[in-house]
Each structure stands twice: as C-alpha cells, then as structure tokens.
C-alpha cells in the first residue's frame, strides 16, 4: 500500500488545485473557529444577558473539543470536494484506464483512493486538534481532555464525507456534476433529517415512544448527528422535550454507512467497464 500511496503522491504533489484546497481548508478552520471564538469573547459574554447566564466560553478547555469539532465540521465540504476532483480527474484524463493497463489491479486503484480518503480525514482531524489547542490556550484555562470523544466523532464525519465523495466520483465520473450532486444531496438529506426529527418529537409527545432523533439515522446525517455545539446552560432545560440521543446507535450506523460506501465504490470499480 505504501508503494501505491507513493504513486498517488506523484500524481497530486504538483497539482495546484490540491495545494490550493489544502491551504483554503487550513485557513478556513482557523478563521471559522476564530469567528465563533471572538463572537463569544467580544459580543455574547459582554451582553447583558451573559451576566444572568454565568459567562460561558465554548473555547475553554472544558468545552473546546466539542466546540472546535462542531464548528470545523462545516468545512468538511472542502476535503470532500478535493477528493471528488482527484478521483473524477482520473476518469476525465482516462488515467484510470492507463493505471490498470500499466499493471495496477482494479482493486488497487480503488483501495488507494479509499486510503487517501482516510488520510485526508486523519489530517483534517489533526488540524482540528491543533486549532483546539490554539484557541483553548488563549482562554488561559487548565488543560483538559473532557469531551475529546467529539474529536473522534469529527474524524468519523470527515471519513464519511470523504468516502461518500469517492462513491459519488466513481458513480458519476464528471467533476462538476459530482460536486453538484454532493451539494444537492446534502441539502436534501438535511431537509429530510429535519422532518424526521420533527416526527421523532411528535411520536415522543403523542405516543411516549422515544426513537431518538430519527434524522440522525440517514447516511450523512449519522456522522453529523454525533457532533453538536456545547449547550449553553440556559438551553438545557428545553432538552426534556427532545428525544434521547442514542449515541451508540448513531455511531454504529455511521460506521455501517462507511462500510457501505466502501463496498459500493469497490463494486463499481471491480465490475464495470472503465
């Protein structure tokens, strides 16, 4: 696999779009978190309401892993888009054929893309951890890893987005179209998830059946649902109306969808004409 990755590196190291997207992602992570950070520092905590609510800074070490994971999660579109570009490029240049002709197996071709998706997810996670430290140190609170599991959830979300991107790429093969479908799908699934969450609340209220937030059971919402912004102390009393979060179930589903994305992508590459 290391040999395959070295070849993949030869393909992308001189690709400007690749470098540009990485830079964009790095700046994005720090900028997005800085915006949220300074919003609390300079606006929310200086408002009159803050006096009543105990000052709450989501970037204190106690909350930072949750905050930074949630906030950065919105930028995972970028590595997913990058992967779509890299994989659909192979179809556009017909180098998917050439790689096989020159001696790769079809299985090697798809596996290295899957591993690339994994590496992108790992690197994104490392960036998020670094961002967490940077902002938490600024709050001058004591180092803590409370809620560090959210970094793990972030990783699962990143990997889900990336694998979904690979799947779309091998299904659709055209860059622009695949990126378009990714956005439309995310939007559509989001709306459906909201509706299903609504049903969950109604079912709980009317029938006393607690299925959890059912919207979280959809393919990309599953890994989404694991992440949430830390609760403002004020908000927690409203929580009793919400269905229970079955974290273990959502987690299990996320991993299940990951496996599904992997096998679907693999099947397409192994069985179809290239």
């Amino acid at each position: 696999m290391l040999d395959l990755l070295k070849i993949e590196w030869l393909k992308i190291k001189n690709y400007r779009v690749f470098l540009f997207m990485i830079l964009f992602f790095l700046i994005g992570i720090f900028a997005a978190n800085y915006i949220v950070y300074s919003l609390f520092q300079n606006v929310v905590n200086k408002s009159e309401a803050a006096v009543l609510l105990n000052k709450f800074n989501p970037y204190e070490f106690k909350y930072v892993w949750q905050s930074v994971s949630y906030t950065s999660g919105f930028l995972l579109m970028l590595p997913a888009m990058l992967l779509i570009i890299l994989v659909t490029n192979e179809f556009a240049f017909r180098t998917n054929r050439q790689n096989i002709i020159d001696g790769w197996s079809r299985s090697q071709f798809i596996n290295v893309k899957i591993v690339l998706a994994l590496i992108f997810a790992l690197c994104s996670t490392i960036v998020v951890v670094l961002a967490g430290f940077v902002f938490a140190f600024r709050t001058k609170t004591e180092i803590s890893f409370d809620g560090f599991s959210h970094v793990g959830y972030f990783f699962i979300k990143a990997f889900s987005y990336n694998l979904f991107a690979v799947l779309l790429s091998v299904m659709i093969r055209r860059t622009g179209f695949a990126i378009g479908v990714l956005f439309i799908y995310l939007g559509a699934e989001n709306i459906l998830a909201q509706i299903m969450d609504g049903w969950s609340m109604i079912i709980k209220r009317d029938h006393h059946l607690d299925f959890g937030s059912m919207g979280d059971y959809l393919p990309l919402s599953a890994s989404d649902g694991l992440l949430a912004f830390p609760d403002n102390p004020l908000k927690s009393f409203a929580k009793s109306a919400l269905p229970t979060d079955y974290t273990w179930l959502v987690m299990l589903l996320s991993v299940g969808y990951l496996v599904l994305f992997y096998f679907m992508s693999r099947r397409i590459i192994l069985k179809k004409d290239l």
Partner: peptide
C-alpha cells in the same frame, strides 16, 4: 507496453512526471 485508443496522461504534469508514474506502477 500498451497504447490503447488515446494517450491517457495527467494534463497538469510534464512528460517526465507522467512517465515517472508509469515507471512506478510497472
């Protein structure tokens, strides 16, 4: 050594960079 239908190469890489990929695969 195969040439099938069309020349298939990474458009943004040079001849040498493209052939390095082939050399590595083979």
């Amino acid at each position: 050594g195969t040439l099938l239908e069309t020349p298939n190469f990474y458009h943004y890489l040079s001849a040498v960079q493209n052939l390095k990929i082939t050399a590595a695969i083979k």
